[in-house]
Design a protein around this nucleic acid. Sequence first.
DNA 1: GTCTATACTGCGATAGAC
DNA 2: GTCTATCGCAGTATAGAC
Lengths: 221, 221
Amino acid sequence: MAPRQAHRRARVAGATIDEPSTELWGPEFAEVARRLLSSAVLCFARNGFHATTTRDVTAGVDLSPGALYVHFSSKEDVLFAVVRVGHERALAALGDREPDRDANPAAQVADLVRRFVAWHAHHHTVARICQYELSGLEPEHFERVQELRRQINQVFRRAVARGLDAGVFDVADVHRATRAIISLGVDLVRWYRLDGPDSPEALAEEYAELALRMLGTRPVT
Amino acid sequence: MAPRQAHRRARVAGATIDEPSTELWGPEFAEVARRLLSSAVLCFARNGFHATTTRDVTAGVDLSPGALYVHFSSKEDVLFAVVRVGHERALAALGDREPDRDANPAAQVADLVRRFVAWHAHHHTVARICQYELSGLEPEHFERVQELRRQINQVFRRAVARGLDAGVFDVADVHRATRAIISLGVDLVRWYRLDGPDSPEALAEEYAELALRMLGTRPVT
DNA sequence: GTCTATACTGCGATAGAC
DNA sequence: GTCTATCGCAGTATAGAC
């Protein structure tokens, strides 16, 4: 068997892992818990949930192995916190306003794509865990996350459906079109890096235009 | 701690796992090795590489735990075989013919997308491991796989560049456009199921059209 | 709330018979 | 080439002192 520790540290699977910001977690968690979450995000993103040890997580914030269990009930509980908050923030980033009935549907879809892509680019390390590590969740926690994912899908689907009703989109099926748009926004967590040539906002703008093209509309200003 | 075995068996992370075909592995592997690989694919796709035990893999083909090591040197060696062959087949599916200089660039890109998407849909269980489990590879093996991924990217990039040179595409940047096209083809492994409403060929056709739209071209027949 | 020490489990890999 | 049996160890989680 290969030396696991060295092996693990070297593994990044091609993705650059940027430090997640501690503020992301909000007042729901105490200071130490927040730092543990950020350490966990780095570890999970680098090596995956199952390859990460509780010692890795605590060592990242200079605590002893046992200290984790004062703040979380298990390693899975840490993962759930990361994934739940990640999805909640992504959903919140889409904006909580009711869609304006009078606004241009194409502009609204473009706006959603911009928000979604910019959030995923900014928080691509957390978002990566939200996409890649769901298999580490216990069934009940997984179900809670699925519900958030359904809500995110619904926001996009409604916007696409409105444009289709208004006759400004040229696609055969709402679900399929929505799926393709979200695929673009999700897959960026696989390759995006903050120090690359594309700022989150530039990528957001590019993908908003691609989404409109896929929907069969010309860009709107 | 939760009961791990029951926990593990219940875990599918929302994706349907279809049985991989044994023929995929080709004559490179003996019969028993091929069956072990197919069992491993199922286990890895369901639970992830690290959550899968060598006992899970051997139990899937009614062998004793130790039998695995007659055919593979380690669990990681099994993963590498799966991921390497998966990438080789995906690359081969793109076709080995040199691009026809006289052919319509748009038609050529559409053809590549069709082949890529159809392969990933047909073999979505293997393809899922190729996208999600790279972090389980040792650095040297990971590098070998990266080389195959570069070749796949290059095939697409060349085709897009040809169309751009010919003036039939309306995009600012070859790399970015290629990236978006591949994102669609890759992300389907996250949600695709063979018993769903879209056949691999139907999805391939849909995505070929979306690719042409993103490139700023009208579909060609 | 953090520490040190450790109990307990389960897994990767090997040994040796057939 | 497959089996049974097992070694060695890594890793989660807990106990109990401070």
